[in-house]
Design a protein around this nucleic acid. Structure first.
Ligand SMILES: NC(=O)c1ccc[n+]([C@@H]2O[C@H](COP(=O)([O-])OP(=O)(O)OC[C@H]3O[C@@H](n4cnc5c(N)ncnc54)[C@H](O)[C@@H]3O)[C@@H](O)[C@H]2O)c1
Ligand SMILES: NC(=O)c1ccc[n+]([C@@H]2O[C@H](COP(=O)([O-])OP(=O)(O)OC[C@H]3O[C@@H](n4cnc5c(N)ncnc54)[C@H](O)[C@@H]3O)[C@@H](O)[C@H]2O)c1
Lengths: 209, 209
DNA sequence: TTAACAATGTTAAATTTTTAACACTTTTAC
DNA sequence: GTAAAAGTGTTAAAAATTTAACATTGTTAA
């Protein structure tokens, strides 16, 4: 398999999530148009993505849910799993940890970091909270590859630097402050305000025409 | 101005956020390559976006920060502002409300809704929490246009239906369960897991080549 | 049995988005 | 005073992404 488009990677992750729900409901097969409906895209898009990963369904019966879940896993997961840390155990950090707790996945949040002495030493939904001072040490010891940043915006840049120095390979930045990382570290940033402003814009647009 | 590309809308929102920070620092002018650096894109991209909205900077001095902020506001904001509600005042809902509190913006979170009697009647960072039973009534009374869904996943579909029935025009769904809305309601969905799995995928990819 | 149907898989076209190329204009340096 | 440098603005090209078109093939039903 060659390079999968970025967008396809995102959709594969989403397909899998939808498929897992279907599996729970006891569904064994699914059509491309059913997946499409769930994801608000077209069935052609789905078939094209599956073509790219070389999966072929059964004519007239659709795709085997279990097989497809496994195949997507082979593609996007790392075999050994990837360990994740959360930096900043506040409201958002807590929301993310809760959300993950209980999910069986190749991605595991294994550590949290904070500067607040009241939080350091506790665990939250099974995730231990360390001092930010211990970052490098714990990242190395646990072989943590990915860091999720949920610190106050003013600490975003410094925190990113710390993560890079600690040897983290991927950063997901939820603060509204863009940060910089060197070559070799994959960075993804998300700010809710952008999304909300986009929704508001299209609501306005819809009203004025 | 004709149709602005979706991606441009997103970037304009991001530019503005970056520009507001620059303004705070007392910067009056900014070059396209400076904006580009912050947003991890190219300066051509920035200039092209600004061309699309018809803004022209000063040769050799770059763009006037204040003017540009205002212009972006004229394009993406609604004049009267847009009111927003949060459905589900849990960890994530609280994080979002805190995040918004204090931000002066055309987008205002004016109401929260929950089913938990302990929460109903309280306020959180100045946002009153109503019973979900009152949704339709409050949405109508306040003229709320956008709803942010942060309820447990199992209630996502029902909540979306309630929002639509209440007359909401835009929904931002933060639960991991995709929902459906009729024509005329703008829907945006975001799931952290997709983003995290994407980061993990590219980390893995980088390691294997 | 055979025609109509309903699904997949794939190639080609269309659209959207990004990047490159370059003309133009101040400012700076000598 | 002139050449070089460093910006912007715009058109054209390239790349990425989505959509359309359609060939193919089991399945169903008359
Ligand atoms: N992307 C989004 O959609 C979104 C939504 C809400 C909030 N946010 C952002 O996420 C961040 C966290 O928001 P929150 O509501 O959880 O804030 P919070 O104040 O509840 O939590 C921040 C936590 O970080 C800790 N902290 C402070 N400095 C630190 C440091 N240097 N290193 C490690 N930990 C440190 C604090 O002790 C606290 O526990 C903020 O930047 C906020 O703007 C983003
Ligand atoms: N998109 C993301 O990145 C992300 C991250 C974390 C959590 N989540 C999702 O966000 C949602 C909320 O997460 P959380 O950690 O805040 O959960 P939570 O349990 O802390 O909060 C849920 C809140 O919704 C309320 N509620 C329950 N049923 C309701 C109903 N029918 N109507 C209105 N309110 C109702 C509960 O009383 C509670 O206050 C979950 O679906 C979770 O999976 C998404």
């Amino acid at each position: 398999m060659k390079h999968l488009p970025h967008k396809t990677i995102e959709r594969l992750s989403q397909y899998r999530r939808a498929l897992l729900l279907c599996l729970e409901k006891g569904k064994t097969h699914i059509y491309s148009h059913e997946i499409a409906k769930i994801q608000h895209i077209t069935s052609v898009q789905v078939r094209r993505d599956l073509m790219l990963i070389g999966y072929t369904g059964t004519l007239r019966k659709g795709y085997n849910v279990k097989e497809l879940i496994d195949l997507i896993g082979n593609i996007i997961d790392s075999e050994e799993g990837i360990k994740v840390a959360i930096i900043g155990m506040g409201n958002l950090g807590r929301a993310l940890i809760n959300y993950f707790a209980g999910k069986r996945s190749k991605l595991r949040i294994v550590a949290g970091f904070d500067t607040n002495p009241d939080k350091i030493g506790n665990t939250m939904s099974g995730v231990p909270c360390y001092s930010i001072e211990q970052l490098k040490e714990v990242v190395a010891a646990e072989d943590i590859k990915v860091g999720i940043m949920t610190v106050p915006a003013d600490y975003a840049v410094d925190t990113a630097d710390l993560l890079v120095k600690a040897g983290i390979k991927g950063i997901l930045n939820y603060t509204p402050k863009p940060v910089n990382v060197p070559e070799g570290v994959y960075l993804e940033e998300y700010d809710m305000i952008t999304t909300l402003e986009k929704v508001a814009f299209y609501v306005k647009l819809q009203e004025t025409d």
